[in-house]
Design a protein around this nucleic acid. Structure first.
Length: 187
DNA sequence: TGCACGATGAAC
DNA sequence: TTCATCGTGCAC
């Protein structure tokens, strides 16, 4: 963490999920892997609003897998998808509301190799796997921080990706990304 | 205990 | 458009 970077506190995550999703754009995701501090700028996210949101994993109720989503805010929910890729979310709002924000794409800042434009790719590049599921993002080594130099940018709203099965929830504009950024997973 | 399928990525 | 690959959730 550079002198200007400030780790986000619990109160940041303990707010409306859509607001948290939008404000996560431009923030720095930090992971210290094998002694190397990897930093990437979050450029694309999706909001999952809880059990009533049919596209959210928590819509199937409290299970072994979704336990972390039902827990307190500011923790990482990391799961395996299609038997081969990991996806990372940050839990938002009060414990029990089971809401989270999926990180879909990041832009390399320091010590990040490979492609990062997609939820599976960003996890691979930042060495994020299921061992980090449930990890508190207020601890050292794995957290999100306010960058030392904030940039202004427009935010594009789109339907979420890969949730066509969710009926009317699939149509809601809960995917957000930085306008004009070249690391977006898809237009 | 079995099985259909997914908040993806890469190849064709 | 198809396929790789396996944990999860739910049916039986």
């Amino acid at each position: 963490m550079t002198p200007g970077e400030r780790k986000l506190g619990r109160e940041f995550y303990d707010r409306d999920t859509i607001l948290v999703a939008k404000e996560l754009l431009g923030k720095h995701l930090v992971h210290v892997f094998e002694g190397v501090e990897q930093v990437a700028r979050i450029v694309e996210v999706e909001a999952y609003l809880g059990p009533h949101d049919l596209a959210a994993h928590s819509a199937r109720g409290r299970t072994m897998r979704t336990e972390v989503m039902f827990g307190p805010p500011g923790h990482a929910y990391v799961y395996l998808i299609y038997g081969m890729h990991c996806c990372m979310n940050v839990v938002t709002q009060a414990e029990g509301l089971a809401s989270a924000v999926l990180l879909r794409a990041v832009e390399p800042v320091r010590n990040v190799e490979g492609r990062t434009q997609g939820p599976g790719l960003l996890c691979k590049a930042l060495h994020i796997d299921r061992r980090l599921n449930g990890h508190d993002l207020l601890s050292d080594g794995f957290y999100i921080a306010e960058p030392d130099r904030a940039e202004r940018f427009g935010i594009v709203k789109r339907p979420r990706v890969g949730v066509d099965y969710a009926g009317r929830w699939a149509k809601r504009l809960l995917r957000f990304y930085i306008r004009g950024n070249s690391f977006i997973s898809r237009l």
